[in-house]
Every structure is written in C-alpha cells, then in structure tokens.
Design a protein around this nucleic acid. Structure first.
Length: 413
RNA sequence: GGUGGAGUCGCCUAGUGGCCGAGGGCGCACGCCUCGAAAGCGUGUGAGGGGGCAACCCCUCCGUGGGUUCAAAUCCCACCUCCACCGCCA
C-alpha cells in the first residue's frame, strides 16, 4: 500500500503520480476519509484517557454513575472510529502503487515501450507447425485428455516434452542459484493475508482459485509464498538483499481471458514456473530491477530465443508494481512477440502490506521487493516454434542436455 | 481427528481484577574504572498511531478475535500456533 503519512504531507505529488494510472479520484476519496478518521481518533482517545485516569483506583459510588456514562460515550466513539477505519482501510488497500517516473505512459498493453530486441527471427521455407502438432511417439502435449480430465485449459505434457520442460526449470534454477539466489520449494496453498499482502487481493479476486472449505487460496505465482517468507519480520541490514528462487505450480482462473489463446498450452489454468524474489534496500531496488531483467535476458539468450524487452505502460501494471519489464519471445507460428517473462519492482508496496522491515542506523524502514520470472513452459513453446525444421523436428538447445532434455522433440509420429 | 500442556518487551522469565504497558535476568548501547581488556558499577534499551515548530503529551499492542466490568496480561468464549501422547494416512 502507499505511504499514507507521506501522502498527507504531499498530496499533490501522490495525486499526480496516481493520475497516470487513473487512480487520482480514489486517492482523493482516501484523503477525505482519512481526515474524518483523524478527527474521530482524537475524540475516542480523549475519552479513553479520561477513563484510564479514573481507573487508577477504585471509584466512589458517586463516581460510578459518571463512569458508566463515560463507558457508553466511549463505546459510541470507538464504534464510529472503527467504521471510519474500515472505510479508510478498504480504500487504502485498493490504491495501486505509485508508478516509477520511467514507466511507460498509457493505459493499454499496446502502449508498452519496446526497449530493445535481440536475436534473429527464423526464416522458414516451410510453414512452421504449432507446438500441439509437433508431438512424436515419444513425447507430446495432450490438451484433449487434459480437457476430458479437468476441462479446458489443462495440459498433459508427456514423455520427452515433460523431460524437456523439467530440464528447462532445472537449468534456470541452476543459473539463478549461481547468481546467489536461494532455492525454495514453497507452499502453493496460502491464507488470505498473503494474498492481500502481495496485492493480488482485493484487485485480482476473480482470477484466483479459492478453497471455500478451508479458506485457502491457490497461488497464481510463487511470488506470494516467497513474499511471505519474511512477513512481519525485522531483517538486519546485512541480511539484504535476500534473494530467493522458487519452483512451483501456479493456478489462474483466467477470468476475462475467455476466447484468448484457446489453442494449446500457451494460457492454461495450471502451469509451472521458476520465479525470482528479492527483498533489498530501498535505494537499491531500481538497480536490482535492471539486474533481474539482465538475468532473465541471459537465460533467454542462452536458450537462443529471439525476443524484445517491453517497458509496460503504467495503466497495464498490476496494483503492486511501480514498473514492469516483460520479455516477449518471438513466436513464429503466432507471428508475433508474446510474453514469456515478467519482472516488477514493487518498491515498498508489498513490504508495507506484509510488514517486512529492516533495521539500520536511522531505525526501521520497509524493504523494497521485486519479482521476476525465471522460466515457464512458454519458453519451451517458443523453442518448439522457433527451432523446428521442415520434418517437424525441434532441436533443443545444448544447454538443456545436461539437465535431462532430449536432443530433439517431434518428428515422425 | 482426540486428549493434555503452553503462548508476556531481541531471548529467558515474574505477574490470578485497579499500585502493570508490565518487574527481574541475559543480550545490546553509552559512561565510570583500566595502559588496554575482562570483571565490577551506573544509565539506557519494543512497535504502531494521533497531536505539537519543539522539549514533549496522548492512545493502542501481554498469540488472534469477541465478551464481562467503572477498570482486564489477569475472569469468560471462540479460534490460531507450538509441544507431548493416542488414532488415521503419506
């Protein structure tokens, strides 16, 4: 969440920044509610101070009547205050992060700014085949059986495809461990606090799977569990940056994506992902964001995928993000660049909600947090589209071989 | 799932209705002592919120949420976590 105290001091700065992502009117509503909250606070605290002074010792009979009266007044004042506080917090929790000045302007996906492109687009003298059509006897993607089992948007990855995908994750994990990330296998079922803390609730409610019976949520990314590692903790300055890399299965309802990417396993309800997460000093997050992007690019380059880097428009950012870079790989069959990784600087937005602070000379302060994709199966899909030959054989990158990937996929079936 | 025990200020612990938002020890910080250090002695040492130019004042927090009372760490209820044992399962 935003820094309310700072917002009171300099409302114009906050309003201007939030206006870029269309949140100025919510911000003004918040300020108004906050003003009345402060009035009610003073009244309730004054009454409470009176009651406490009178309760230092047993009151006389005469005082008792007066104190009973005071109790009623206090209860009323506290009730008013609680209502104002709820109203204020409900608003506060929906206000998105302040965008970074260098985040691209605009409200749409198309407003993203292309920072650079890398790699050669493949030139086919045949019509490249869709990953779904590139299976062989020894390995394939099976959406039909996935649908029979679980409905649309569920994929079986079978045989060599399964091995290739696992090799991709293990390769990525190794790369990031060598950069100093600590590997984690996290829970994927989490309580409501973690979902609010990371900012997926309340804004992404419709996209999350919720288990009513146990009141637990299936996470759409291991960012949620990784952010939770240090919730309510006070870190020492020398523990920062804390860097984690997780592998987990992720669950997304994809509400609002009806009709989009319906073929194949590009957009599915359940997918696996290697994810980076960093808690760092506030003054380091901007630089760390570039580093995370750099690690992502190294991985995509090692795989040999042509890609471009997008600076996502402010209006297209998730609520917690101040700035976001996506890497979009070239998908020759789709004929366009598509997102395969995403990394965000969430500054102190999640740290405030999750209460992750660190201690240093000046006292306690909130850490900054960042997250970024290591790899998902979309990278494998991109490899299948880019690295195929006219026989439908996909040559996988050498770097994946030590991790158990077959040399090729597809071919005769 | 069942039974029993426990959750207090960084750690350990005292505390069964008002003198406790909280005592003691450890740790930590500063000072004295010392050539220096240790020991010893002294002082200080949680977080959040509101008000004030400031010194400072006020409120909240004893696992969490409710309740009783003029007054709750303390009494009552529910829940959570941890430990032990039992049952069941991987």
């Amino acid at each position: 969440m935003i820094d309310l105290k700072a917002a009171r001091k300099d409302p114009d700065h906050f309003r201007t920044a939030l206006a870029r992502r269309g949140a100025a009117q919510d911000f003004d509503a918040l300020l108004a509610v906050d003003a009345s909250w402060r009035e009610l606070t003073e009244r309730a605290e004054g009454l409470r101070a009176r009651q406490k002074r009178s309760s230092k010792s047993a009151p006389s009979e005469a005082e008792l009547a007066e104190l009973r009266q005071l109790r009623e007044e206090l209860a009323e004042a506290q009730g008013d205050l609680a209502r104002a506080e709820t109203e204020r917090n409900d608003l506060l929790i929906t206000i998105p992060n302040l965008p970074d000045p260098s985040a691209a302007d605009g409200m749409e996906e198309d407003d993203a700014q292309t920072l650079r492109t890398w790699g050669e687009l493949p030139a086919f003298d045949f019509t490249p085949r869709d990953p779904l059509d590139l299976g062989s006897k020894t390995g394939w993607i099976d959406m039909a059986r996935g649908a029979r089992l679980s409905g649309s948007r569920f994929a079986y990855r079978i045989g060599d495809v399964a091995l290739a995908e696992m090799a991709l994750y293990r390769f990525t994990l190794d790369r990031l461990i060598s950069k100093g990330f600590l590997p984690v296998l996290p829970p994927v079922l989490v309580g409501e606090q973690a979902m609010y803390g990371t900012g997926f609730l309340p804004t992404e409610e419709s996209n999350t799977y919720h288990l009513e019976k146990d009141d637990l949520y299936l996470t759409g990314t291991s960012e949620v569990a990784l952010a939770g590692i240090h919730a309510d903790e006070r870190l020492e300055e020398d523990e920062l940056p804390a860097r984690y890399v997780a592998f987990s299965t992720n669950f997304r309802r994809e509400a609002g994506a009806a009709g989009k990417d319906t073929r194949g396993m590009f957009r599915v309800h359940q997918f696996d992902k290697v994810e980076m997460y960093v808690c760092c000093l506030p003054e380091e997050s901007v630089e760390y964001h570039e580093r995370l992007l750099g690690y992502e690019e190294e991985i995509v380059q090692a795989l040999g995928l042509p890609y471009r880097v997008q600076n996502i428009a402010v209006g297209d950012l998730g609520a917690p993000a101040a700035k976001k870079y996506d890497i979009e790989a070239w998908f020759p069959v789709q004929g366009r660049y598509r997102e395969i990784t995403s990394c965000s600087n969430t500054t102190d937005y999640q740290a405030r909600r999750l209460n992750i602070r660190f201690r240093r000379a000046g006292g306690l302060d909130y850490v900054h947090t960042l997250n970024g994709t290591g790899a998902t199966a979309r990278a494998l899909l991109a490899m299948m589209e880019n690295f195929q030959d006219s026989s439908g054989t996909v040559t996988l990158p050498e770097v994946l071989r030590p991790y158990g990937a077959p040399a090729t996929l597809g071919g005769q079936r």
